[in-house]
């Protein structure tokens, strides 16, 4: 099945499940069990993992890969975004892969972190709206994940009091929410 047919499949599925509860549908589209309904190929998934990990790499705290950001981005595109957005990202990922092969003779997934960063930077701005979309979703996915919220940021789910003006400590991180 080519990508266009796959996208069409998603539309039919959504149209056909109007009677099913919203949560039922979300579970279905999230589990990935029904691969036929996905707009993205396995190669896309691998590539998305690597792109997200390039945007939010592991440091002294786990990065995008550990936080499941790649799958999150694709899931959001499938559940919450338009066919056009999915197409934009699919084509964008193909372009990244093509340029990796042209410039380095190998897949983006196989490049050193430094080369991946350099290559992605060439896609900045208006030239690549797909990367802006991925960045938005990747950041959202990471900083609202358990790893991102509790390790990269500071989580205080039930603050109790509101302290209006407190001195900022050296190295203090932003609140997760």
């Amino acid at each position: 099945m080519n990508r266009r047919q796959a996208i069409k499949g998603v539309a039919v599925l959504i149209g056909g499940t109007a009677a099913i509860s919203t949560f039922g549908l979300m579970t279905q589209s999230c589990s990935g069990e029904n691969k036929e309904t996905s707009a993205f190929s396995d190669a896309d998934r691998e590539l998305m993992d690597t792109v997200c990990d390039t945007l939010i790499p592991e440091t002294d705290i786990p990065g995008a890969k550990a936080a499941g950001v790649g799958p999150f981005v694709l899931m959001m595109l499938e559940d919450c975004h338009s066919v056009e957005d999915r197409e934009l990202v699919s084509v964008g990922l193909s372009t990244v892969e093509k340029e990796a092969k042209q410039q380095h003779g190998k897949s983006f997934n196989k490049l050193a972190a430094e080369d991946r960063e350099k290559l992605l930077k060439t896609f900045e701005g208006d030239r690549a709206p797909f990367l802006g979309l991925i960045k938005r979703l990747a950041n959202q996915g990471y900083y609202t994940s358990e790893i991102g919220a509790t390790q990269a940021l500071v989580m205080d789910f039930t603050p109790g009091d509101y302290q209006a003006c407190v001195p900022l400590q050296e190295g203090q991180r932003a609140w997760a929410m």
Partner: peptide, 25 residues
């Protein structure tokens, strides 16, 4: 309010910039 992680959407973030990415904006 001070901006939080949302500020990162505007810029690409890279290894070694973790303090920059996670401090209050």
């Amino acid at each position: 309010s001070r901006s939080g992680w949302q500020k990162n959407i505007a810029e690409l973030s890279y290894a070694g910039e973790i303090e920059e990415r996670t401090k209050p904006g």
